[in-house]
Every structure is written in C-alpha cells, then in structure tokens.
Write a protein that binds this DNA or RNA. Sequence first.
DNA 1: AGAAATTTCTATATCGATTTAGTTTGATCC
DNA 2: GGATCAAACTAAATCGATATAGAAATTTCT
Lengths: 352, 352
Amino acid sequence: MTDPVTPLPDAPMHPDLEKPTLKTIARLSGLAVPTVSRALNDAPDIGAETKRTIRRIAAEIGYVPNRAGVRLRTGRTNVISLVLSTEHDMMNHTARLISAIAGGLQGTPYHMIVTPFFPTDDPMKPIRYIVESRSADAIIFNQVQPEDPRVAYLMERGFPFATHGRSNRADKHPYADYDNGAFARIAVEELARRGRRNIRMVAPPALHTYGRDMALGAQAAAAAAGVALSIVDGVTSDSTNAEIRARIGALVIADPSIDGIICGSTNATMATVAGMEAEGFDVGTDIDIFAKEAIPFLRFFRDRIIVLEEDVKDAGEFLARAAIQAVRQPDLPPLQMLEIPALPHPTDPSKG
Amino acid sequence: MTDPVTPLPDAPMHPDLEKPTLKTIARLSGLAVPTVSRALNDAPDIGAETKRTIRRIAAEIGYVPNRAGVRLRTGRTNVISLVLSTEHDMMNHTARLISAIAGGLQGTPYHMIVTPFFPTDDPMKPIRYIVESRSADAIIFNQVQPEDPRVAYLMERGFPFATHGRSNRADKHPYADYDNGAFARIAVEELARRGRRNIRMVAPPALHTYGRDMALGAQAAAAAAGVALSIVDGVTSDSTNAEIRARIGALVIADPSIDGIICGSTNATMATVAGMEAEGFDVGTDIDIFAKEAIPFLRFFRDRIIVLEEDVKDAGEFLARAAIQAVRQPDLPPLQMLEIPALPHPTDPSKG
DNA sequence: AGAAATTTCTATATCGATTTAGTTTGATCC
DNA sequence: GGATCAAACTAAATCGATATAGAAATTTCT
C-alpha cells in the first residue's frame, strides 16, 4: 500500500556488513537452516526448485561456508599440510614447489599450511603432530627415502598423503617424481656420445631415493657404454669456495684424465665448474658438465654446460591434485606421475 | 574368490585413542567444562589449587585445544597468512623467508598459510579475501611499494599485518627491511675507494620501495664521492643468456670506460658478470662488481665479486614476532627492524 | 548476628555447519 | 476410503571452546 521509502533495516540489496551464514540464507529464503545446508551440498532430499533458489541467493550475497563451522562439525579441515625438508638445495626446489602446489590448490576449498622442518629435527615430528591433532586432511612431503618411516606411518594409519619423490612402496601411494635414473642414464650416454670416457658424478646423498636412483642409473649406463664412472661425495651449500676448489683439485690430482662430470643440482654444478676452471679446465672443451636444475639459472652461468630442467611446477600442481584425490576418493588408485627427462635436441651438437 | 583371511588393517593399539577435549578433563577432575576452560586460560576467578590440578591433568593426557572450536567461538584463527609475490628473484628471498617465518612461529599456536600470487594477479585480491573471510589473524606480505594499496587497505581496517620492506607509512606499521639505501651508498663508496669512477647499477624496478631506495642511495653517494653513476634496467630471471650479453654489450659499447657495477640480486650479478666477461673484462681487475644476495651463492661463482649478504632469516623471524604482536597487543607501537649493511673488513682489500 | 562482599565454581547460550530423527504433504495403492 | 509410501522439508542435537549470568560457599563488614 505504501512505498517503502525508508530504507529497511536489513536491506538485502546491499550485502550486510556481517558475513553471510546459512542463517542469512535461511532468513532470506524462508527455509530452515538445515534445508539450506543440504541444498548447497546437493542432498537428494531437497527439491530441484528449492535448490535453485537457495543457490541463487547464496551466490548473490556471496556466501562462503565458515571453515571453523565445517571443521568442527565434520572434522574436515580443508587444509593440506606441506611438510618440507629444508635440507640440501633448499633454493632449487622448495620455493617453486610451494608456489606450484599453491597454484594447484587455487579454486579448491583447500588452504596450504607450510611446515618446514630442519635437518636437526626429527622428520616424524611434524607428521605425527598433524595426524594426531588432525590439523590437515592430507600431507605432502619431500626428500623421500626408500624405507621412509613417514610413508610407513601414514599408510599404516590410512592418512592421506602424497610425496615428492618415491619410496619403496611408491606403487601404493600418490607421488610425483622425476626419473633420476633416466636422467643419469641420459647424462652418461650423452657424455659418452661426445667422446667422454672418464666420468664423475657429484651426487646427492644416496640416503634419499633420488640420490640412489641417480647413482644406480649412472652406474648401469656407464657399464653399458663402457665408460669409467665414479661417484663423488656431494658438495653442500655450506661448503666454501675454497673447500670446493680443494675438493675438485684433489679429484683432478687423483686422475687428471677426467673429462665429464654429472651434477644433480645448481649448487653442485656451480661449485664444480668453479673448481674445474680453477684447475685450468675449459668447460665444453676439456671437459663436459651435464647438470640438472629446477630453476633455470645455470644459463646465466656458462653457455656450454649441458642442462636438463626438472619441471617442479608440474610436479607441484600434480601433487595438489593427488593429495585432494587421496582425501576425497581414497578408494581410487593413487595418482602417480613420473617426469621422464629427455634431451631437447637428440642428435644436434649445439655450437657455442 | 579369495578367502578373507587377511587380517584387519589395524586395531587400535591405545584404547584411549580419542583426542582429549575440555570434557575429558572435566570428567577426570570432576569440575565443569567452563571451569576447565577458564583455568587453562588463567582466568582470575579460578582458585590456584584448581588451576594446578587442571593443568596437571591437561599435561598428563596431552590436551591441545581444538582449533576449530576456538576459532568458531572466538573468531581467532591462530593463522598468519603469508602473501608472497613471486615476482622477481623468487629464489633469492622467498624460500628462505618462508622458512624463517615458520621458524619464528615455532612454539606459538600460530600456523602459517602461504598464498603466493602471480605477477598477473591483482595484489589486492588475496588481501581482500583474507580480510573479508577472516581467514587469518594477521597478514605478512612483501614486495612493498611506497604507496602500497595493501598497506592503505589494511591500516584503514585496522587489520594486523607486517611487511617485508617499507611503505611510505612505514613509521606506523610493523615491518622488517634491509637498508637498501645504505647498501647502495656503501657500494658506491667502496667502488670509489677502489678507484672506480664510472659506475652502473643494475637495479630492481623503482616501483618497489627497495628499488627506489637503492637508486636514491646510489645517486646521493655518487654525487658525494664525485663519481659517475647511471642506472641500468634490471635483468630479469626470464632473460636468456644471449639477451643479457647483448644488453651488457650495448652498455660497454655505449661507454667502454665502465669500471664498476652494482647488482641488487644474485641473478643480476651472474648475468652481469657473464656479460662483462664475454666483453673481455676481467672481474676484479678491469672492473669491480658489488653485489647483494640473500642466499650465499655467488661465492660459488667468482671470488672477486664484492658481496654483502642480506639476512632474510633474521627478517623472517622478526616478522613472525611483529605480526603476532600486532594481533595480540595492537596498542603497542609496531615492531620495526632495519638491517643495516656493513662491509665485513672496512679497509682490507681482500686478495684473490 | 545479619548483611554485604568476595571467591569460586556452574548452568546455559552461542559461534556455524551438519547429522539424525522426525513431520508434513501429497500421491499411490488395493 | 483408508493405509502406505515417497518427497520435501523442519526440529533438535552435536562438534569443542568460551562468554555471560548466576549460584553456592566463604569471608568481611557493621
């Protein structure tokens, strides 16, 4: 009868200052709160028309479920915990992995909580904490060992997880990995193809699966190609320039006929090149360096290093999906991804 | 088909496996749930003896408050959101910053959620999302600009935050920063002291505060020292080796008397050195390079680069504390930290 | 002693969502 | 026509913690 010229206390046109909840939608639609909840969750006992109405209202007022409410009631946290070892080549993988997993989580209700642990810490501690306090729905972790206690622990409890790198039980759990064995094989074969006969590999610790894979792959390929190969203790990022030179110097003195070196990381490569050059070797002429890295960096360093890039971004995004599937469809076979390295130009010797 | 002789996955080893809640403690102590809550929160209206009893029980059974319960009731999330730009030298700072902030959060009830955003994204988006959905108690972000809209937005709303780098309003908000102006001044002075007279600076974009500070500091110091200085557009991590050489080549052709270069990052330094060496310059002899980096890396590269290290670890730990104080004691003056760079050996020209 | 104040604890409501157990309505069936 | 059944909804309980108001026990005051 009268035009409501005066603004209503709850004018639904402008979104309230308060965050909308199921109650808000219930009030606006005249339906009960559980009905709204069930409609939004697509329960079978809610009418199609009702669902449409409720969803329209929810979208209009920008309803987003309160995480604490969901978590308290259901136990679902909508959190994926990323437990990262900062040991070894921290800079090579970590930042990109974090960024990629976060990217893979975009558009999902999952948030990513990062829990780094330090070499001195017990790797089990953060895992146990998350499982016992149920502070995440799934865990992603890296630096996997063949007999990894974290894998055993989580599988035993049926707690969803995904790993960057494989364990001995990798056939039964989600993972993303780079085929380090293939990398090593390609490296040896390429060096052999270039006429190199006396190869060293600066390998990551064999404690970890990727270090072991790399060593095994290189040894097998060297035997097949009939070239000499031996594995050198890795140079860590804590080594000083002088130490590295000494290390490389000793290597050269022990056997001056070295003509190829395989390096598993940016760090190791730079240290090795610096050392070899200090010994008077010209990289690309007297010796070939075959390297792997996760972030394109070595191209700033020397043109004539042979570099394969590991696509950590791809792995991270995959791990996000794999972890979510482990949470939501635990009965499906685990998602697994193996990046197979390949030389970009199989038979084209690039010229400097 | 197969007989079900396989034993069950696992039987509960510990009978009291349920996670303890306030109710558990209430039952064990014979007190009411709110009493237990108030005792654990050290409320003034609970007797000393009662508090002692309750705390003992809580410790014995390993009680940890349910985050969802706390969050739902109080609105406190116990989450610090780290919103990181992945623009520019991702690898230099980011991983270490994440790790350091997480370290600073150890022993606190705070978890760290990482939300990277990409150069193409609107920097305001993640900030708005967090504030509107109240999904964190505080935000830490980096890549600060002088007139940063995020700073304005958060200050306007009184939302707790801390920044890595300063804005124009830095006197009023928590931050940790490195004195890039001082770095540039020291660089110019040291190069001048070594007899360099024609200096270039490969600077980060002046859009960001740190880029601006660096440029201003260098210009002032150059004027004071009476040396020539000009600023070169930064080389990004997307530049190819060839591009960089071309860039540096053009620089040398434009003025072959260049004898000093200041670089703000590992990347820029490596690219610059590679370019200069390709032009036939010997670093440390024909030209001096003065660099800054967050992760000791350049020492693997060349001995004779002059390097100052930025302590991102310190900054990260500080930011954690600063953010927590902004949440808990918003009326205290904001915690602020400025790392002042200094040359390790003021008047000792190191020998190669 | 009786009232007032203090100390210490309890009952109840609440945050927001979901689950369980109904209830209503209308259609179906014999 | 009455019973049965399905569809579509609602009421109430619940997750775990905390805020508020109030009650019981004790002490202090006049």
